[in-house]
C-alpha cells in the first residue's frame, strides 16, 4: 500500500455537486497511511497471527478502502460513510475474537470509529428475562459500545426459532435500527460457527443485508498449529527443547483427529497442562535429591511433559480438549 504515493483523484461519482472538484488535484495517500500508523497494525497482524490468509487479505482490503475514503474526503469527494458491520464465521479457536480486537484498532487508526474500544457481549448481555427488560438492556450495551466496536459472540443464540415468545427478536430489531441509524458511531461484529450463522441469517434477512463483510475463518493446519504453539510458549516465557518440539508436533497430529478439537484453544490448553506437568516434574526432582533448579530448568518444557498427555495413551478418548 505504501507504494501508492500521490494518487491522482479520479472522479468516481457522476457530475452533481462534485462538479467543483478539480480532477487534477492530488492528495498524498502515503501521508494518510503513514499518519494513521495502520501499516504497523497490519504488519503486527501478519507477524503475530499464524495462517488466516483470507482474513488478513480482507482486513488489508478494508484498511485500503478506508484510507482511500479519507483521501477522497480531503478532495471533497464526499460519499456516505461505508457500512462496516462484519460477520466472522469459523470453528472454535480460529481467532475470531483476537481479530475483532485488531479490527477495532485498525478502524480507530483510520478514523472510522472514534474511540476504538471493544465491547464483547453474548446473548445474556442483550436479552432480558421478562417483558420490557430487553430493550433497555440492549440499549445500555449499544450506548457503551458507541465510538467503538460491538462484538457479539455466538450471535445465533439471539434468535431462538423454537420459542416464539423469545425476547431475542426484540433485541435483534433494536440492533438493526442502531446499525442503520448510527453507522458512523459504532461497528457491529457478529461471530459464530459457520453453519449456525447461516441459519441465523436465513431467518433474519434484515440482519444479513445490513452486514457488508462476511469473513470466514479457516481451520488451522498442523504446521500452523505448531507455529502457534511456539508463539504461545515464548509469550509465556517458556521454551521447548528439541524433543519437546517434535513431541508437540505428534501431539497436534493426534489431537487433530479427535473430537472437540478447538484449534488454537486446544493448543493453549495442552500447553497449560504441559506446564503443570513440568512443575510437577521439578517438584518431584526435589524429593529425588535435586534441590537446585536453574532458570533454564524452570523455563524448559521437555518431551516427557507433553508425551504424558492422555491424547497419546487413549486413541478414542472423547472429552479431551
Amino acid at each position: 500500500m505504501a507504494a501508492m504515493a500521490l494518487v491522482t483523484a479520479a472522479r468516481l461519482l457522476p457530475l452533481t455537486e462534485e462538479a467543483t472538484v478539480d480532477d487534477a488535484k492530488t492528495v498524498d495517500l502515503q501521508a494518510i497511511v503513514r499518519d494513521s500508523n495502520v501499516t504497523e497494525v497490519l504488519d503486527q497482524l501478519d507477524r503475530e497471527l499464524v495462517g488466516l490468509a483470507p482474513v488478513k487479505r480482507r482486513i488489508r482490503e478494508i484498511a485500503a478502502y478506508l484510507a482511500v475514503t479519507r483521501a477522497r474526503k480531503t478532495l471533497g469527494l464526499e460519499a456516505t460513510p461505508p457500512s462496516l458491520h462484519m460477520c466472522f464465521t469459523g470453528n472454535p479457536g480460529t481467532g475470531k475474537t483476537t481479530v475483532a480486537l485488531r479490527m477495532a484498532e485498525i478502524l480507530h487508526r483510520l478514523g472510522y470509529v472514534r474511540k476504538g474500544h471493544v465491547v464483547s457481549v453474548t446473548r445474556d448481555d442483550l436479552v432480558g428475562q421478562y417483558i420490557g427488560h430487553t430493550a433497555p438492556k440492549t440499549k445500555e450495551v449499544l450506548k457503551r459500545a458507541m465510538g467503538g466496536v460491538l462484538f457479539i459472540d455466538e450471535a445465533y443464540y439471539l434468535y431462538r426459532p423454537e420459542n416464539e415468545r423469545d425476547y431475542g427478536q426484540e433485541s435483534i430489531e433494536i440492533l438493526l435500527q442502531v446499525m442503520e441509524n448510527n453507522r458512523d458511531d459504532l461497528v457491529v461484529i457478529l461471530a459464530g460457527y459457520h453453519d449456525r450463522m447461516n441459519t441465523f441469517f436465513s431467518s433474519n434477512p434484515g440482519m444479513s443485508s445490513r452486514i457488508a463483510h462476511h469473513v470466514d475463518f479457516p481451520d488451522y493446519s498442523q504446521p500452523e498449529l505448531l507455529s502457534i504453539a511456539g508463539k504461545m510458549v515464548s509469550a509465556m516465557n517458556y521454551r521447548f527443547d528439541a524433543d519437546a518440539q517434535q513431541a508437540m508436533g505428534y501431539y497436534i497430529d493426534r489431537r487433530l483427529t479427535q473430537p472437540n478439537f478447538a484449534n488454537a484453544r486446544s493448543v493453549r490448553n495442552a500447553l497449560d497442562r504441559a506446564r503443570l506437568r513440568q512443575a510437577n516434574r521439578l517438584f518431584a526432582g526435589v524429593g529425588a535429591g535435586r534441590p537446585n533448579v536453574t532458570a533454564d530448568d524452570l523455563s524448559t518444557l521437555s518431551a516427557s511433559d507433553i508425551l504424558a498427555s492422555r491424547v497419546f495413551d487413549a486413541p478414542d478418548s472423547a472429552d479431551k480438549t
Binding site: K139, K143, R144, M146, G147, G148, N182, D185, L186
Partner: peptide, 17 residues
C-alpha cells in the same frame, strides 16, 4: 430518564439517550 450512564466511552451513546 433511565439510569445514569457510568461506563460510556463515547458521547454518541449519551446523545442517543
Amino acid at each position: 430518564f433511565g439510569n445514569p450512564m457510568f461506563d460510556l466511552k463515547d458521547a454518541a451513546g449519551a446523545l442517543m439517550e
